[in-house]
Design a protein around this nucleic acid. Sequence first.
DNA 1: ATGGTAGCGTGGCTA
Length: 264
Amino acid sequence: MKIATFNVNSVKARLPRVLHWFEEAAPDVAVLQEIKCVDEAFPREAFEDLGYHVEVHGQKTYNGVAFLSKHPVEEVQRGLPGFEDEQSRYIEALVVPDEAEPVRVGGLYMPNGNPAPGPKWDYKLSFIEALTQHMEDRLAAEEAFLVAGDYNIIPDPTGVYDPDRWREDALFRPEARAALRRMLNLGYTSAVHALMAENYYTFWDYQGGAWKKNNGLQIDHLLLTPEAADRLEAAGVDTDVRDPEVGPSEAKPSDHVPVWVELS
DNA sequence: ATGGTAGCGTGGCTA
């Protein structure tokens, strides 16, 4: 079962490219971030035509997440439990395939947190606390569960093209790195980290020719409980999706690329 | 040198 995360940076502006990726990658489950539209405006039929169930936790203008599954889904949750949030940044559901074991999947769009310090940084820290608590609670259930998404955290210096320039940034500050480390120390496994030997990025800024210079960041992750990690067979990053020369020409690429795992 | 990119929505915020 293939499970993917993709920050699309507006699902409406990106639709031809997103659909093209869905047809090629054919994920069983995909979580999308920054859809930037309300539930009613989500292009539901386009994904249903490809065979997906569609669950949306949308928001006008900013943020917004979606959950797409070829298999039946149950227990859909919007937002983190116990965390009042005007911003739509988390969606979760239990995927119940006919011919595979169930897996619970969370779709995450972590606050950026810049500038730090400041109210946006404080919001990121409080969001991290709620997410970590939720991940701890889910871990205790001892079921196959993973949180896939845009964590907006660079794990270590190999995840950024110029670490020294990013020391004070909310994506790379010690507190952010410690937060991700704390999630891993609970018992979660970062799937791509575990299976890919070489360095990789998942985001390249639109500015400054970042793609051509390979000035990237590693900020999209999939964190798996032991019960999910036991089923981990493969993981990957669809880097080509960021290339303006590759794929449909009707739309520009997102600044993020899809990241995925295969579970048995 | 205080720009430079993209999306939303039509001025300025967010990333």
